[in-house]
């Protein structure tokens, strides 16, 4: 059974402090999202790519995601240039497909790919439980962090349960089609998961209270910055600073 939560990423980046990765990923993405200049976007794409390669990220997972993204970007390339004014490439009556539009669509596509690469290397390598703790250390609201941690805890159980129920329905000859029977069946399967899970969460709460829970979680893991983390933060900062200087400097 594949677990949703354990993206086993055996790469050097796995040892870097999750907080450092979270902040790096955030800065990198924001900078790329805001950037308007081709040089900056291209350099950002290249550096995100380099970080992925340096971290030896497995390509298989990344490929699926990038294909999905670029199918959308292709649609963008087909549609967007019709609503950008500029020098005409083709026209149908009053509708014009412009070079400027193509350029803009390409820029969006490169940006999008760069951000996904940056996310993949910096943030998707953090396992979800550490992500919750990293958020707590970065002073996100306590209830939000707890909500996050509980959600993560339940996620695998539910994923498992949903697979089991759907399997059992298939064993009784259920084959999804576009019809009311399918929608009713799927809604009942999901509804069943929901109803049972809520009962379970009540039992979980009761069991937690029995062990003295009163609205606080204590963190077992404490992060502390090491030399390698400092080095990592410095490297990323240099990249981000150079990109920012190219954009605004």
């Amino acid at each position: 059974m594949t677990s949703l939560l354990l993206l086993k990423v055996d790469s050097v980046i796995g040892n870097i402090d999750p907080r450092a990765r979270l902040v790096s990923g955030f800065l990198f993405s924001v900078l790329l999202a805001v950037a308007q200049k081709w040089e900056v976007i291209a350099a950002g794409f290249l550096s995100a790519f380099l970080f992925c390669a340096a971290a030896r990220l497995p390509w298989s997972g990344l490929r699926v995601r990038l294909i999905g993204l670029n199918v959308f970007m292709l649609a963008l390339l087909l549609v967007m240039p019709w609503s950008v004014p500029g020098s005409v490439l083709w026209n149908i009556g009053n509708w014009t497909y412009t070079i400027e539009g193509v350029e803009l669509a390409l820029m969006v596509a490169v940006k999008g790919n760069a951000i996904v690469l940056a996310m993949s290397v910096f943030i998707s390598t953090i396992d979800t439980a550490s992500l919750g703790h990293a958020l707590e250390h970065l002073r996100a609201p306590r209830r939000l962090v707890h909500l996050f941690l509980f959600t993560v805890r339940y996620l695998d159980i539910l994923h498992h349960e949903s697979r089991r129920l759907f399997r059992a329905a298939r064993a009784r000859g259920f084959a999804p089609r576009t019809d009311l029977h399918t929608y009713r069946t799927v809604s009942r399967l999901i509804g069943t998961i929901m109803v049972r899970s809520l009962d379970r969460s009540e039992r979980v709460l009761a069991a937690m209270k029995a062990r003295g829970y009163c609205g606080r979680f204590y963190l077992l893991h404490h992060f502390s910055l090491r030399m390698s983390d400092a080095l990592f933060i410095m490297t990323v900062s240099v990249f981000v600073a150079v990109l920012a200087w190219m954009e605004w400097g």
């Binding site: 129920l165 059992a168 329905a169 298939r170 064993a171 000859g173 009942r188 509804g191």
Partner: peptide, 17 residues
């Protein structure tokens, strides 16, 4: 699956209606 009937070990897997 239409010709062989599988009874699951956990009845909670089977019942959802």
């Amino acid at each position: 699956r239409r010709r062989a009937g599988l009874l699951f070990e956990d009845p909670d897997d089977q019942l959802f209606n």
